[in-house]
Design a binder for these strands. Structure first.
Lengths: 191, 191
DNA sequence: GTCTATAATTCGATAGAC
DNA sequence: GTCTATCGAATTATAGAC
């Protein structure tokens, strides 16, 4: 143990560059069309490095698709503004991070990514909704309805890029959609 | 012109079988993962037949992705029930036809399919919304918001298959979501 | 009209030199 | 640690026999 390279101190920079390029490519092209070769070219390294560091394309995607919604604590905001808070948070969150787009594009055809998506929304959003109080047995359903509206917004704005939705300024979007989320979260279940 | 095969009467049955199989495969797997070989195998014909009839994989998809939302005339229903009518119609429409799922899966990564999707929703849903009366300059935006909610519902229920949304009976789904669509269609624009 | 055979690519993954 | 070389598999598309 008296060698000159004491630490397992490989090129963490390379590793990070791969991950960054992978996120971009997966976001832009989805799982199938994003090739290891293209990702490696973006990261300015050899394709075989990707295999060395992440084992396989699936392993790389698993690492690239780690996603924390970073949801705020809904118990800390006035209950009548949870809808607005949540919509604005999601808009901010994914305007600055393409990972969710990558996950959506991939989940459309890849079962593993769909499973990941189910986990992310059931656990993270489910937990945030549960903290609002209310009937605990209803929390998953309310979270599911919110996910439906939020993901539909993401799909039309960032994936399909429907012009009227793309052109709407964030504030207008919040004004339109927040009441929907508010209702899914706090209104009594319909008869 | 006195031949024994007077009509360009090729095997229309084969052509239809290809189209049916293509719709199923594209719906289940998306564009990239749905191979011509698999589609041909489903249709019990040779892969080269697909090329003969549709020219290319893109040509086949274009034919398979023709999609008519078959929207009802919203001017013919009581204005306070247009939301309910629309949500119920969409649920019925795509429970019985996988083409929309195929289009969504493919639009996630294929620019041509995304363009098709924009056209379908802008033209068909846009026209239906315009028939409701109201400010014509607002119709596209309202249609876009409705598309966001509706497609999000489809994405969570049929693509990602989020359990709480999958488990909700259609009637409950209508009860929850119809007010949202109703508001996007008929409420005054928020300040 | 239908099928066989194959061309031309492209991709993920591996082996091994340096 | 990084790269060269290549394998084996899968794909779309074409040429041509029957």
């Amino acid at each position: 143990m008296t060698d000159t390279a004491p630490r397992t101190r490989r090129s963490d920079a390379t590793r990070a560059a791969i991950l960054r390029a992978a996120r971009e490519r997966f976001a832009a092209d989805g799982y199938d069309r994003a090739t290891i070769r293209a990702i490696a070219a973006d990261a300015r390294i050899d394709p075989s490095m990707v295999m060395r560091y992440y084992g396989s394309k699936e392993g790389l995607f698993a690492a690239a698709a780690e996603f924390d919604l970073r949801l705020p604590d809904l118990a800390a905001v006035p209950v009548e503004r949870v809808g607005e808070t949540l919509v604005r948070h999601f808009l901010d969150r994914w305007e600055g991070d393409e990972t969710l787009a990558a996950l959506m594009r991939t989940a459309a055809t890849n079962p593993g990514a769909a499973e990941r998506m189910r986990t992310v929304f059931a656990e993270q959003l489910g937990r945030a909704v549960a903290r609002l109080g209310g009937d605990p047995t209803e929390a998953p359903r309310r979270a599911g309805l919110v996910a439906g509206q939020i993901l539909g917004l993401a799909f039309t704005r960032y994936i399909v890029r429907l012009p009227p939705v793309v052109d709407l300024p964030p504030d207008d979007l919040v004004a339109w959609v927040a009441p929907t989320v508010q209702r899914y979260l706090t209104d009594p279940a319909p008869a």
